[in-house]
Amino acid sequence: MPEKVIEVEHLRQTYDGRTFVVDDVSFNVAKGEIYGLLGKNGAGKTTTIRTMTTILPVHYGKVRILGMDVSENAEKIRRRIGVVLQNESFDFASVERNLKVYGMLWDVPREVLKARIEEVLEVFDLGPLRKVRAMELSGGQKKRLQVAREFIHDMDLLFLDEPTVGLDPIMRRSVLNYIRDKARRGLTVLYTTQIMEEADYLCDRIAIMNRGKIVAEGTSSDLKAKYGDLKTIHVVVSGDIDYESLKSKFPEDVIVDNEEIRIVSKNVEDILPDLIIYLKTKDIRIERISVEESSLDDVFLKVVS
């Protein structure tokens, strides 16, 4: 049986003593696993993370991190975890000094620290910015520094609370690959994001939170199979489309955008032949046609709404 790094049992958290922002949440994360916690704003993700990282006390339920109860071993746990907060955090110093000071705070030996600084400066493309003061960086650059800084020290478990906000697609992919590489070497990661593609690409398992509860959990494929029974037909045509006529013929979810038609339905196999015949009778030429499986976005929308 794989070693459990995170064990959350019936966690309930409240700020005012009346409403529960986290309400009966339970999940486990195994060693080396990347676990995605998804949910819209206010779903309870950050409160759950703050509890697991010992910032907030456990009100009801049980939370064990690396085999230790968070209520009893907060400091021991903090020595073995890394946390990239959702909000920006940095010292008023250059990029390089931020990394050096952070390494010193974690008591990283000098030679190791030197090598790690060079590594993260390269991976996170911060080399040309090493002498720039953190407060002068752009939002995306600050985020890169914040994520890079956490890889300066050793850890068994990493919490990443929306770490790619503001990053360009190339850097985002590079960061995700770096995290995946670390997980393959045994690092356990708890990852929250609003970007479903990221969760799909990175996470071994995903939990979707809504109003303080976990409403769906599983691998990306499991979730798509369970909740993603909708498919989308994309048709690119040349010729004028009469939206009203199309809508009356296909009362499903029809979207017309210039010369592109999109129909979302459970029964694409039935609709597709009818659509082709319809377009032919209207003398509309089909340029391209495709059918797409539902994405994690569709699953999320369905589960959360």
């Binding site: 903090r78 909000n87 705070l105």
Partner: peptide, 14 residues
Amino acid sequence: RWGMFEQLLVGPFH
């Protein structure tokens, strides 16, 4: 103000 308080509280300190 700059987020380091929370960052340090999740670090290896009392």
